[in-house]
Design a protein around this nucleic acid. Structure first.
Ligand SMILES: [Zn+2]
Ligand SMILES: [Zn+2]
Ligand SMILES: [Zn+2]
Ligand SMILES: [Zn+2]
Ligand SMILES: [Zn+2]
Ligand SMILES: [Zn+2]
Length: 245
DNA sequence: GAGTTTGAAACT
DNA sequence: CAGTTTCAAACTC
């Protein structure tokens, strides 16, 4: 629904997007910092007293040496895995979880989307192939993914139909009155809007228990749709007016 | 957004 | 090596 096509411009033209860190006490020179741990400089991060940059080259190299001294494999390909002959995707050291059941992102195995293995020393692990808890979680996860995709699809459809209609009908609209052209309320737009709202309703039905809250969300979404239509109609009128003058 | 929970990394 | 502390992120409300 929002027409921002220019959002991904300056950020990652060359490198893949990395989540910015928020370190405050490590100066991004310890493995606590994900940027540093991945052998990368901090870029577009929210850290304080960051030394993980070219301006602190000396300190940085010193820190790297310290880490390497503690663990020579500290900066190795990480999750030691890949298709190395037989070695499946395995965590190099295994996790040591005690309270997460290895089914939350606290667990490095789960975070890497891999099963725990024999080298893990976790307690109460539910992150193994046959685990019912794990399967349930997976189901819920991709169900949510489907819902998001449906919502996105509905919004895209509505947007495209509105702009489509804008192209097709703009030259014809020339009513000089102060009213907006109601020709926008076509079958297509109404259907797309209903689809959008229905999708929102289905989503709310499964997440929010409170009916009043669900109604509020749907109404809010309707407001967005209506705003989009009104704005488009207004633009069309303005355009046709400028053409006539 | 504030506060809590968690486990890797660091330290002793 | 084991026990403790520190840390930043994941999570909860
Ligand atoms: Zn950092
Ligand atoms: Zn960073
Ligand atoms: Zn930093
Ligand atoms: Zn784990
Ligand atoms: Zn594990
Ligand atoms: Zn586990």
């Amino acid at each position: 629904m929002n027409f921002c096509f220019f959002s991904v411009s300056a950020a990652e033209t060359t490198s893949r997007p990395r989540k910015p860190c928020n370190c405050t006490k490590s100066q991004c020179l310890k493995l606590y910092c994900d940027c540093f741990a991945n052998g990368e400089f901090c870029n577009m991060c929210n850290c304080n007293n960051c030394f993980n940059n070219l301006e602190h080259e000396t300190e940085r190299l010193k820190a790297i040496k310290t880490c390497l001294d503690r663990n020579p494999e500290a900066f190795k390909p990480k999750i030691g895995k890949g298709k190395e002959g037989e070695s499946d995707r395995r965590h190099s050291k295994g996790c040591n979880c005690k309270r997460s059941g290895c089914l939350k992102n606290y667990c490095e195995c789960y975070e890497a989307k891999i099963m725990c293995s024999s080298i893990c020393k976790c307690i109460g692990c539910k992150n193994f192939e046959e685990s019912p808890e794990r399967k349930t979680l997976m189901h819920l996860a991709d169900a949510a993914e489907v819902r998001v995709q449906q919502q996105t699809a509905a919004k895209t459809k509505l947007s495209s139909q509105i702009s489509d209609l804008l192209m097709r009908t703009t030259p014809v609209i020339s009513s000089g009155s102060g009213r907006l052209p109601y020709t926008f309320l076509t079958k297509e737009v109404v259907e797309a809007t209903c689809e959008c709202l229905l999708d929102k309703a289905r989503r709310a039905e499964q997440t929010d228990q409170l009916t009043s809250e669900a109604e509020r969300l749907i109404l809010e979404e309707f407001g967005h749709c209506l705003m989009n239509i009104i704005t488009s109609a207004g633009k069309a009128k303005a355009d046709s007016a400028s053409i006539n003058c």
